[in-house]
């Protein structure tokens, strides 16, 4: 079944098809107390070589979306609805062995904690060569050479010596570099990076961000960067999707979303970040906190915290509508459009 994909026009007039397309994704957790919906009707596309940021507070469903794409949802979590397409091929309903072939080869992954993503009992070199051998027909000695090249590429000094060391010999920043090297092993087309810099200090974070940007540019790898840090998004991404309570509330070019946030949630989120450009006595605050999965409000999930909530927001759930270059799920913009049309 070919995907009825919406083609996008590139600047030079060519039609470009998205590398990854997520359509109407719904992730559920059936529990004894009812079904919890962690991701609800999420759709987005990533173009080849593009860096898409997914930002939101804890519990927004951003990591779940990433895990669903690489088929790493932990049972009882499951994809209840929707589809995921990688380069025109549907990958959400593949048998385990097939998705395992894609994961690592075509989609790489970088997780938050570099210590838990590496096996403490194997040397870094063994983990790298194993991955390279799994995804290519390289000979062991060739794979080792490639592994040393990769370590050098991610900026690890003396890679021919470091390759025989164990993960605990590396510092946090160096471990994250190793994990990035692991993700790059098979030259994937897409990397899912789930909070790759959250466990690191700011100076190391800056190094890792610069490294990821450079590598993705060099290899033309697309990245889905999941993070809670708007600063990291601003530094790296081309486009950004803001998630709240399992849904995308705003998606658009990073400059537009950050400089002129439209959705009340994004607007509040930007205002609550202490910044250098602004000298304010008080930060804008969004009262309350993200609803739990068991008590997602009716209508727009943000309405109990929204300063501009209307009657309609409490009853009907808004869908993404195009506003300028972004798409926003908020009745404020739908209303405005209807009025303009009328």
């Amino acid at each position: 079944m070919p995907p009825p994909s919406k083609h996008m026009v590139e600047p030079d007039g060519r039609l470009a098809s998205p590398l990854l397309e997520v359509r109407n994704l719904r992730v559920e957790f059936p529990t004894r107390r009812g079904t919890l919906v962690a991701v609800d009707g999420v759709s987005f596309a990533i173009m080849p070589g593009e860096i898409l940021g997914v930002v939101g507070e804890s519990g927004a469903g951003k990591s779940m979306t990433g895990n669903a794409i690489i088929g790493l949802l932990e049972p009882p979590g499951r994809i209840a609805e929707g589809s995921i397409w990688l380069d025109g091929e549907r990958i959400d309903n593949l048998p385990y062995e097939k998705i395992r072939r894609i994961r690592g080869k075509r989609i790489g992954a970088v997780f938050q904690d570099p210590l838990t993503s590496l096996n403490p009992l194997y040397t870094v070199g063994r983990q790298l060569t194993e991955t390279i051998c799994t995804h290519s027909d390289m000979h062991h000695s060739q794979a080792r050479k490639r592994a040393i090249e990769l370590l050098a590429e991610v900026g690890i000094p003396a890679p021919d010596r470091r390759i025989d060391q164990y993960p605990h010999h590396f510092s946090g920043g160096m471990r994250q570099r190793v994990v990035i090297a692991l993700a790059l092993c098979a030259n994937p087309e897409l990397i899912i990076a789930d909070e790759p810099t959250t466990a690191l200090d700011v100076s190391i974070q800056a190094q890792i961000i610069a490294l990821m940007k450079r590598l993705c540019h060099d290899h033309n790898t697309a990245v889905m960067l999941v993070t809670h840090d708007m600063g990291v998004i601003a530094e790296t991404c081309d486009r950004v999707a803001v998630m709240y309570a399992g849904r995308i509330v705003e998606i658009g070019p990073v400059r537009q979303v950050i400089k002129s946030a439209k959705h009340p949630y994004t607007h509040g989120l930007m205002g609550s970040i202490p910044g250098f450009g602004k000298d304010v006595r008080r930060l804008t605050q969004i009262d309350g906190s993200m609803p739990g999965l068991t008590d997602t409000p009716s209508g727009c999930a943000f309405h109990p915290r929204c300063p501009q909530a209307m009657d309609k927001c409490r009853k009907v759930r808004p869908d993404l509508v195009p506003v300028e270059q972004s798409q926003i799920a908020c009745w404020l913009f739908d209303e405005a459009k209807e009025m303009a049309n009328a």
């Binding site: 800056a206 190094q207 840090d229 708007m230 600063g231 530094e235 250098f276």
Partner: peptide, 22 residues
């Protein structure tokens, strides 16, 4: 170095390369 390594929300594009070392 600390100040320069803060992600730039203003997106002024005046960042220099991050400092090496740990």
């Amino acid at each position: 170095m600390l100040l320069e390594s803060i992600p730039d929300l203003e997106m002024t594009g005046t960042k220099t390369a991050p400092l090496a070392g740990e």
